[in-house]
Design a protein around this nucleic acid. Sequence first.
DNA 1: CGCAAGTGAGGTATCGATAACATGCCTGTG
DNA 2: CACAGGCATGTTATCGATACCTCACTTGCG
Lengths: 340, 340
Amino acid sequence: MTDAPTPRRAPTMRDVADHASVSPMTVSRVLHDDPRVSGQTRERVLASVDALGYRRNEVARNLRLGHTSGLIGLVVTNLANPFYSQLALGVESVAGQNGLKVVLTNTDEDVGRERRLVEELTARRVDGMIVVPAGSDHSHLDPQTPGSVPVVLGARPPTNLALDCVLVDDFGGAREATAGLLAAGHTRVGFLGLPPSVWTSSERFRGFCVALEEAGVSLDERYVRLQQRTIPAAEEAARELLRVRRPPTALFCANSRNTLGAYRAATRLGVDVELAGFDDFELADVLGVPLIVAYDPRELGRRAAELLMERMSRTDTEPEVQPRRIVVPTTVVRYGNATR
Amino acid sequence: MTDAPTPRRAPTMRDVADHASVSPMTVSRVLHDDPRVSGQTRERVLASVDALGYRRNEVARNLRLGHTSGLIGLVVTNLANPFYSQLALGVESVAGQNGLKVVLTNTDEDVGRERRLVEELTARRVDGMIVVPAGSDHSHLDPQTPGSVPVVLGARPPTNLALDCVLVDDFGGAREATAGLLAAGHTRVGFLGLPPSVWTSSERFRGFCVALEEAGVSLDERYVRLQQRTIPAAEEAARELLRVRRPPTALFCANSRNTLGAYRAATRLGVDVELAGFDDFELADVLGVPLIVAYDPRELGRRAAELLMERMSRTDTEPEVQPRRIVVPTTVVRYGNATR
DNA sequence: CGCAAGTGAGGTATCGATAACATGCCTGTG
DNA sequence: CACAGGCATGTTATCGATACCTCACTTGCG
């Protein structure tokens, strides 16, 4: 007497219609609160909907209605990095507020994979995409391509394309923090960073160099290391810097992994070196890293999503809008030493 | 002479067919590498595909082919928590390997929101879902419901439902770490945790209590605080514990926020108290927290996704499989004090 | 009492892609 | 020279939902 053991297939509108002895059209009307349905019929249909556990198939619906999937794609390079998961969080929150869902994908910094993912998301007819591009070839993101969807770039600017993007003030933050070190009297300042082929890294390095220049301090290449992607690598690089003949008395670290590596190296070598670093992280205050360039990656995600929403709502008939570039500001935080 | 200024609408298969002067069917065949198409026609079709920038509409395709969207839903309670972003990472990696994409949603621990999200994802016909349930009412996840999709629960077990789930060994980890503190000679051990209404918290607390019992130490409620969800709250609670008349000489912290709060309180009060905590975190070694219950949230995500893949591939005709419960083990890590 | 306006519900075509079936053409062979 | 058979392509129906049009029946008013 109970239900079938395996009620697998999802009931369709036709099932409901049959069950209520009406046409599918009437079911559709009831579900749309169309006033042209009699109260009695409405009741009967709703009862059937309930009895069968019917749920409208959004896929079919969207196909029929025009091309809107209610999904936006998010393509990031490395989800393991808290920066990107925070960014995803920001995107999700704005998308959610707008009734959209986020399809999350990870490229692992692989340009080929990125290309494929963008392709697939487009084929899936997402309503828009936020992409943190892995490389500097952005040809697959060209908004001129026929079936393309609105795209906003995150954290890195477009190359040769008219795309919106949201950036961090990498240059300004690095410059200000470096200036802070110089103002404290340091003249031998080292730099730990990522390869400058990554745009953000290059900007941070540029900020560092400009700060030196403005202070009349010349850049010493022996104090520069640009290849550390992991904490252990950063620690090793910092060790090397701290063991040259006249070692730097301060280090600017271009991201949190380099900061942590430098902190470990300094702690383990028992060397007194002042640190400044890009990216805030939990416990920065406890460790007593004096200068941290802080910003909110969630804000980056939110702004990117907002920009995308705006692009998406724009109809083709409206005048073309110039691509916009939003720069999220950074704050230099001065943490006292927790141990006093 | 150049392309139209706004080449908006995505070209359809019919457009390609017209452009190549063939029927849509032929285009479909070419796209499927069907050998029954002459080389010449194939060339022509491919040229048209290229010329128009055609991309197959996956939505329409999936609708026609049967009910598989190539998407799986991920519903978590709080993406801001690194635990869940790591979990998401694990899910994404396994999904990606299986050609699936992940729709990421956040409930903010709101049961109503969770209900709605599950509903929407189902309506969207995701192929499966991984859910970290916010509350203990799981009625909306009942696999008996007609149109429901396979569900795997993450981090928390199902209530009254036959659902697969992947858990952390909360009990075992807490017990082992607490036992470690007791073995080191502590008899006054405090507990900092979350409200026991959350399953994981209650399990960790249970592990703590069992360890005490096994060591013949009686539980002192004055040493227990179960309401701290943030680092500041945890710090405050720890301060209180450390200022009672005969304060605990060791603290077991049920998650990383409590551990960090306790660490801060201890540092700032200048009190010497031994810490043990659930959840590993960056710098735990540097801080010298002696005992950390570590596990990999990504592994949790991976296992959950694997379980889901298995469920999804199961056809209705195969015999029913008992719901499975996978427990991801924890490791108690002993960090020496970094400063020696 | 007759006809127009109004009301509730069904029929058909469509979104884009595709499986199953159907058709037309060319070649080979008795 | 006619017809069987294979090969390349076109037609039709379908997935689930819905916009638009049509139709049957009721009601109102002159």
